[in-house]
Design a binder for these strands. Sequence first.
DNA 1: CACGGGTAGTTGTGCTTGCAACTACTTGGT
DNA 2: ACCAAGTAGTTGCAAGCACAACTACCCGTG
Lengths: 155, 155
Amino acid sequence: MAKAAEPTSGAPLSGRELAAWRGMLRAHAQVTRALDVQMREEHDLTVSSYEVLLFLGDAPDHRLRMAEIAERVLLSRSGLTRLCDKLVDHGYVTRSAAEGDGRGLYAELTDAGAAKLAAAQATHRAGVRDFFLDQLTDADQDALGDIWDRFLADE
Amino acid sequence: MAKAAEPTSGAPLSGRELAAWRGMLRAHAQVTRALDVQMREEHDLTVSSYEVLLFLGDAPDHRLRMAEIAERVLLSRSGLTRLCDKLVDHGYVTRSAAEGDGRGLYAELTDAGAAKLAAAQATHRAGVRDFFLDQLTDADQDALGDIWDRFLADE
DNA sequence: CACGGGTAGTTGTGCTTGCAACTACTTGGT
DNA sequence: ACCAAGTAGTTGCAAGCACAACTACCCGTG
């Protein structure tokens, strides 16, 4: 039923393994929750919404294909559809057909969306620093960046 | 409205900062999703459910207070109440009043729960290794453990 | 140029979770 | 002993999200 694996595969996690693994879970939960609360209180945005605006703001012509956004904000396509619906309702984003591909859509930042992004961006950056980066030394940040780069190297 | 902060607080994130921060987001999402799928397919458990069983299995007398479990599995109290409901329905856990505190409850692992845990534990450990630890060197794991320890030092 | 297989996006549905409000119990001050 | 304040757990409710099924469109093969 289960495929045979390396000998130690099912053995208890060592102290080192536990610290590396559970530490990430706790750190991630702690930081993302703090950011969520902050973003909601100060700008009435979820972090996911903010990130959509962020990626659109960085994109050429302030627009991106739906699937492209979904991939970047770590959301399913259906999840992004609904999130985008809300952003359209709020007037931060518009949808337009992709020329050359009748299936595709662009989401494009409106002026109001760009203004919202500008307002939220400072908060978010400060939050990432307050809740995460400032607890780390420069060497820690380098080490983390290096680790994640290698970890994520194969997509 | 916003409180004044350090000068660089709202400045764009540097490459180092971005790599440390977004890397964690992607790595976390990638690993937890893979584990979720695996746990559901092979044992019909969510990772949260599994973790409740896990902590109960490690606890003295195989029982813990509800709030204690909630804190460990990174769930709100209400979230744990419902999760626990399901585990009780499945026969993996029972609830019993805490002697000495009429408000409190213990969740306690049943024999069926212990059996389920034993079956799932090997899968989960192997999964954590397959999807996370095995992509890291020993030095990486040490570095991460060290970073998280310091990061989480103040609760 | 028809058709089968693939892709982009949306919608139906249901699960998981958190917040706020609630009940029940405990505890400390008077 | 009483009462106010605090804590443990549950419940009503709503948000956020994923999976699967669906529509619409694209493309390569024959």
